[in-house]
Amino acid sequence: MRYLLTLLATFATLAAQAGPPQLLLDVARFRNLNKVEKGAEVEIYVTVPTQSLQYRQRAPKAFQSSALVTLDILKADGTSAYHEVITLKPPVLTDTTIAIKNPQSFLKRILLPDGKYTLRGTVKDQYRSAGGETTVEKPLVLEAPAGPFLSDVVLLSRPAAKSGGDDNFARGGYRLTRAPGGSYGRGADNVFFYTELHNAPVGQALRVHYHLTTPDGSAADADATLTPQSGRPTSIAGQLPMGPLPDGPFTLFVEVYGGPGNKKLIAGHRAIGEHSAAEYAPAGAAVPR
C-alpha cells in the first residue's frame, strides 16, 4: 500500500510538472545547386524541450517520456509538399526531479521549388490524453534575388568547425551545431553564426561587417574580409562576444560591402536571438560520435 501511494504521488508530481508540450522550429533557407530546377534546400531544425513532457514510470527507478512530432509543408493552394511523422524517445531517467532534462533535436533537409509555403509542426505528448498537443506554423517563402544575396543566418551554440564530413550537420565545409530557438543561456559568452553569399563579384576582396544590437542600444561590431568563390556559394562563419549585452532579445546583422573602398552594401541579412544569463538554453544536437 505504501508503494502504491508513493507511485500515485509520483505520477501526480509528474503531471503537475508537465505543462503544454513545447516545440521549437528553426528554419533556414539555402539555395540548391541544381541549375535546371530553381529552388531551395530547406533546413528544419526541430527541438522538443523534454521539461514540458510527462514522464511515465516503466520500471523501478526508470522513467521515460515519449513525443510524436508531425512535420507538414503545405503549398499555397493547401496541398501537401512534404509530410513526415517522427517518434522521439528521450533517454530513461532514474530520477524525474532532475532539474535539467536534455531536449531532443533533429534536423531535416528538404528540396523544394521556389514558391510560397506554410510549415506546420505538431508535437503530441504520448503519455497525456488531454492538453498534450501543440502546433506551430511558420510562413515559408522560397525565392532568390537576381544580384548578390545572403542565405538565412543560422545561429550556432558553438563555433562552426571545419569538416570534410557529409551529413545533415555539415554545410559549406563546416560542421554546425545550432542554437535551438536562437537561445543563449547561462555560460554563453559568444554568438556564433553561419551564412552563405551568392552571386558576388569573383576575384574581389569584400568586407563583411557583423553587428549585434539589443533594444536598449547596446551593441558589438566586427569586420572581416572575404574573397568569393567562383561558381559556388561562399561560406561565412563568424562570432561576436556577448560582452555586457543585457538579457532579452538581440538582432545580429551580417552585411557584405563591395565597390570602391568596400563601402557599397551589396548583400545583408539578419537573425534574431535571445540571451538569458540566468537560465540554461537548450543544447544543440550534434552529429553522433
Rank of each mutant, 00 (worst) to 15 (best):
T6W: 15
F11L: 15
L14P: 04
L14M: 09
A15F: 05
A15G: 00
P20E: 13
F30V: 09
K38I: 10
A40W: 08
E43W: 06
E43A: 09
Y45A: 12
T50K: 05
S52C: 06
L53M: 04
L53T: 00
Q54L: 15
R56S: 12
R58F: 12
R58K: 12
V69S: 08
D72R: 11
L74A: 01
A76I: 07
D77N: 03
G78A: 03
H83L: 03
T87K: 08
T94V: 11
T96P: 09
T97V: 09
I98C: 13
N102V: 14
P103F: 02
P103A: 06
Q104T: 10
L111H: 11
L112Q: 00
D114F: 15
L119Q: 02
R120W: 10
T122P: 00
T122H: 00
R128W: 01
T134V: 10
E137W: 01
L140Q: 08
A144I: 09
P145D: 02
P145Q: 02
P145M: 02
F149E: 03
D152L: 10
S157Y: 07
R158M: 11
A161M: 15
S163W: 00
D166G: 02
D166C: 04
D167I: 06
F169M: 13
A170D: 14
R171I: 13
Y174D: 13
L176C: 15
R178N: 15
Y184D: 06
Y194L: 01
L197Q: 01
L197G: 01
H198W: 11
P201R: 06
P201I: 05
Q204K: 12
H209D: 15
H211Q: 07
G217Y: 04
A219V: 12
A222M: 12
D223S: 09
T225M: 15
T225L: 13
T225W: 12
L226D: 05
T227I: 13
S230R: 14
G231C: 11
P233N: 08
Q239E: 14
L245A: 03
D247P: 03
G248M: 04
F253G: 09
N262T: 04
N262H: 03
N262S: 08
G268V: 05
A271Y: 07
I272G: 10
A277P: 09
A278Y: 04
A278F: 09
Y280M: 14
Y280S: 13
A283I: 09
A283D: 09
A285N: 00
V287M: 12
P288Y: 01
